Amino acid sequence: MDFTVETATDAVVESFRTTKDQRLRELLGSLTRHLHDFVREVEPTIEEWEQAIDFLTAVGQKCDDTRQEFVLLSDVLGVSMLVETINGTEDGTESTVLGPFHMTESPSRELGDSIDLLGTGRACVVSGRVLTADGTPLPGAELDVWQCNEQGFYDVQQPDVQPPGNGRGLFRADDEGRYWFRTVVPSHYPIPTDGPVGRLLDATGRHPYRPAHIHFIVKAAGHLPVTTHVFVADSPYIDSDAVFAVKSGLITEFAESRDEDDAERLGVAVPFAHARFDIVLAPEGSR
């Protein structure tokens, strides 16, 4: 059968008929149908298709051990958040994007330690509990935390300025599911714009900024892990996150505290910012 505009999709889908992995066959078939429908709809010129291939090639070439441009592309197209939302659960804390900077292993730290190794920003304490949907504490839950500094840069972006592991920590909740750590209040920041994704944003007139936030991946035995953020209330761009990750339930006050007793107990000086953020994990099988 001749390969024509009308027969193209069926021919390619049929070529995957002997794929043993049923899910892979389903994914490839659906991808083919949607991609072919897109091409038939927009009717790209040969030059436009070559530009598209060059763009994707450049995205791949920009990836390395500390930079994931394909994740960034997925983020700015809203695909990352769409996948997270589809795979989320109503029984736990809302999930958000992983982001492109979870590229190194967070160092293990004790509860109360500081993840700020420079000591140059506004002092901050983040505390909360890891709980089940019915409020039962999850002792020993693992919390992987990472954030930018007060200038809006992650450690991997400034290897000559920030020591490895700055802004990162791996914690274990105590016997009552509580966690707390010291840090600095993060800044809003632009996603990297020195690559093809940045050029895409520029061509479409979109800003590259993310509101201030701290990343979490939280795990506990018998429960679904969650990848999420705590967003700094009133941060610039809280209503126009470049990667569409803000959810109202994750916006948290980083309130100024002048409580001397709290400051002494937490190992900071007054005044300091204090963010309280409880994390709820859904049981396995609830998705």
Results as ranks from 00 to 15, higher is better:
Lys20Ser: 13
Thr132Phe: 01
Phe272Ala: 04
Gly121Asn: 10
Phe16Lys: 00
Val59Leu: 13
Arg265Leu: 13
Glu47Phe: 05
Asp239Ala: 14
Ser95His: 09
Val232Phe: 01
Val230Thr: 14
Pro236Asn: 12
Glu94Thr: 15
Glu14Phe: 02
Asp160Tyr: 04
Ala11Phe: 03
Pro196Tyr: 06
Ile251Asn: 12
Leu35Lys: 04
Glu94Lys: 14
Arg17Asp: 11
Met1His: 06
Thr32Asn: 03
Ser106Asn: 11
Gln51Lys: 10
Ala141Ile: 00
Thr204Gln: 09
Gly165Trp: 09
Phe277Ile: 12
Gln158Phe: 03
Val145Leu: 05
Ser286Gln: 05
Gly60Val: 11
Cys148Ser: 15
Asn87Ile: 08
Ala255Tyr: 07
Phe153His: 11
Asp21Thr: 09
Val243Thr: 15
Val42Thr: 12
Arg265Asn: 10
Gly205Ala: 07
Arg206Cys: 09
Gln158Asp: 04
Val145Thr: 08
Glu260Ala: 12
Glu253Arg: 15
Ser108Cys: 11
Leu224Glu: 04
Leu281Thr: 00
Ser30Cys: 10
Arg210Phe: 02
Ser108Ala: 13
Val243Pro: 02
Gly112Val: 14
Ala8Asp: 06
Lys247Asn: 15
Thr4Val: 11
Lys20Val: 08
Glu264Leu: 14
Ser257Gln: 14
Pro163Asn: 06
Leu250Gly: 14
Glu26Arg: 04
Leu117Arg: 07
Ala58Arg: 13
Tyr179Lys: 02
Asn149Trp: 05
Ala203Lys: 05
Thr9Ile: 09
Gly267Glu: 10
Lys247Glu: 15
Asn87Phe: 07
Met103Ala: 13
Pro164Met: 11
Thr120Phe: 04
Leu82Lys: 14
Thr136Asp: 13
Leu27Pro: 08
Gly205Cys: 07
Ala221Ser: 02
Leu28Ile: 02
Arg67Thr: 15
Leu201His: 07
Thr193Asn: 01
Gly285Ile: 04
Ala220Pro: 00
Leu77Gln: 13
Val42Ile: 15
Ser235Cys: 10
Gln22Met: 09
Val5Leu: 15
Ala255Gln: 14
Ser114Lys: 07
Ser235Val: 14
Ile251His: 09
Thr45Cys: 04
Phe231Ser: 11
Leu56Gln: 11
Ser108Met: 14
Thr18Ser: 12
Ile217Ala: 02
Thr132Ala: 12
Leu200Ser: 06
Met1Ser: 08
Pro225Arg: 00
Pro186Asn: 08
Pro139Ala: 00
Ser286Tyr: 06
Leu28Gly: 07
Leu72Arg: 12
Thr136Trp: 07
